[in-house]
Amino acid sequence: MTTNSSLTSEQIEEYLHEAVSEHVHDEEANSMFGFVIFLLSESVIFISFFAAYIAYKTTAVNWLPPGVEGLEVREPAINTVILVSSSFVIYFAELALKRHNLTFFRLFLAATMAMGSYFLAGQAIEWSALEFGFTSGVYGGMFYLLTGFHGLHVLTGVLLQGIMLGRSFIPGNYDKGHFGFEATSLFWHFVDVIWIVLFILIYIWQ
């Protein structure tokens, strides 16, 4: 096994320098790292729900509740397009922020919020029109569990975006970096990807 003798005095010197100017470890990078791990971990909840969904669908004897034919795909498909597009819109907001163009940043962010809200509203309308409920067997349970849990994430995303929008009016808000917004944006992409899987599982694979 190797020992430390390979360490040159310059290296030690450099380390010492690093040690003195600690606190340079950038807190933003830590936060972002932590946030990415959080999302990875969060995705396991969705994966678990998806796995359960697949297991139920492939083994259940009576899958759809009595009287239910299947799901209407058209409206949700439009909803999907809106949500997926909003991921691009928030990306433009991110670009605008990098260029310190606050006006465009706010514009794109507000647009993202609007699209997210449209999605939520569409979901609410769909829910209210369905003839089965949360307790209508495993199918009803899984449907509302998945769309509801995802919808909760969309709502969180929109609220976070609202906070970011509000904060952008605070002078000096971006002096320490863009972590808050970058995290919000990443979260939104995450919510988006989850929806695509969800859409395929629930609406396409009927």
Partner: peptide, 14 residues
Amino acid sequence: QLFGLPALTAGAVM
């Protein structure tokens, strides 16, 4: 903990 706990959470929610 990070990869395992969420599965338990999913089960617990259901």
